[in-house]
Amino acid sequence: MKKREVLASVKDERLVKKRRDQMIKGAVTLFIQKGFHRTTTREIAKASGFSIGTLYEYIRTKEDVLYLVCDSIYDQVSERLQKDLDPNEGTLESLRLGIADYFRVVDEMQDEVLVMYQEVKSLSKDALPYVLKKEIEMVGMFEHCIRRCVETGELALPDEKINIMAHNIFVQGQMWAFRRWTLKKMYSIEDYIKLQTDLLFQGIEQSIIRNEEGVFSTSITCEESTR
């Protein structure tokens, strides 16, 4: 799906990126406090550190700002995952590392993640499918990594369980942002990563044993392990 273009009258790409980054930070704070519909573009401009006239040099509508917020989150998460998650290694350790890195990104961007899920419904019909497609692509990165673990013999999972495990990883990472008001009272991010990763693997670890050479092999099928 083609990237939705947000028009700017300024031609300097570095300046456009700088101003839009300022805009995103200011808008996220306001959207958390007031919500998208109650926030004005004048307030966004003030929170961003420039005038309303300058704001309209980089966007055309308030919805453009929300789109930029959502797009920025997905770009940063996707970039980090592509950098840190080796989708072809096919080991449980690489999967664990990828999960940990993803959860840490959510921790770093928890305000943005919260705003995205609160306000993404306000995106127009042409912008929403693009944003949702990017989420599916990130789930797909985990799905590919899990599938490689199956191919190398480290996991024994049918296709439907591969898909749901990938979605579980994605949602449980974001739960750190949704439920932070209570989770942070009980856990650090590192505690949360360990607990959630252990739970993710708990349902499948019975199907794997380590032999004397340190290579994983299937001990029972997934169908047997769920009986």
Results as ranks from 00 to 15, higher is better:
110 Q>M: 12
75 D>R: 15
224 E>T: 00
103 F>G: 03
7 L>G: 00
219 S>G: 04
125 K>A: 09
21 D>F: 14
199 L>D: 10
9 S>F: 15
122 S>M: 06
183 L>S: 00
51 S>A: 04
63 E>P: 02
84 D>Q: 14
37 H>A: 12
191 D>W: 12
47 A>Q: 06
182 T>I: 12
144 H>V: 09
98 G>K: 06
113 V>G: 01
52 I>Q: 15
71 D>Y: 10
127 A>G: 07
195 L>F: 11
10 V>E: 13
171 V>C: 10
143 E>M: 13
30 L>C: 02
136 I>S: 08
37 H>P: 04
208 I>Y: 03
154 E>F: 07
127 A>W: 14
171 V>M: 10
217 S>G: 01
44 I>F: 03
43 E>S: 01
79 E>M: 12
81 L>N: 05
186 M>H: 15
174 Q>W: 08
14 R>T: 07
47 A>G: 07
90 G>L: 02
147 R>Q: 13
227 R>H: 08
149 C>G: 05
199 L>Q: 14
27 A>D: 01
40 T>F: 03
9 S>L: 14
152 T>M: 08
101 D>Q: 13
2 K>R: 10
78 S>G: 11
162 I>D: 02
93 E>D: 14
60 R>L: 05
115 V>N: 09
106 V>A: 06
122 S>K: 06
42 R>K: 12
96 R>H: 04
69 V>D: 05
200 L>M: 13
166 A>D: 10
35 G>M: 00
124 S>W: 10
30 L>M: 00
191 D>C: 12
97 L>D: 13
123 L>Q: 06
221 T>K: 08
71 D>K: 12
48 S>P: 04
177 A>T: 06
20 R>A: 01
80 R>C: 10
66 L>V: 03
105 V>Y: 02
33 Q>I: 04
57 E>S: 08
193 I>K: 00
43 E>C: 07
54 T>D: 05
208 I>M: 11
191 D>Q: 12
58 Y>G: 05
145 C>G: 00
82 Q>T: 11
80 R>W: 12
97 L>G: 09
181 W>R: 14
76 Q>S: 12
35 G>R: 07
57 E>A: 04
221 T>D: 06
51 S>M: 03
108 E>L: 13
207 S>Y: 01
18 K>D: 10
189 I>N: 09
11 K>R: 14
7 L>Q: 13
70 C>K: 15
175 M>D: 00
160 E>P: 02
128 L>T: 06
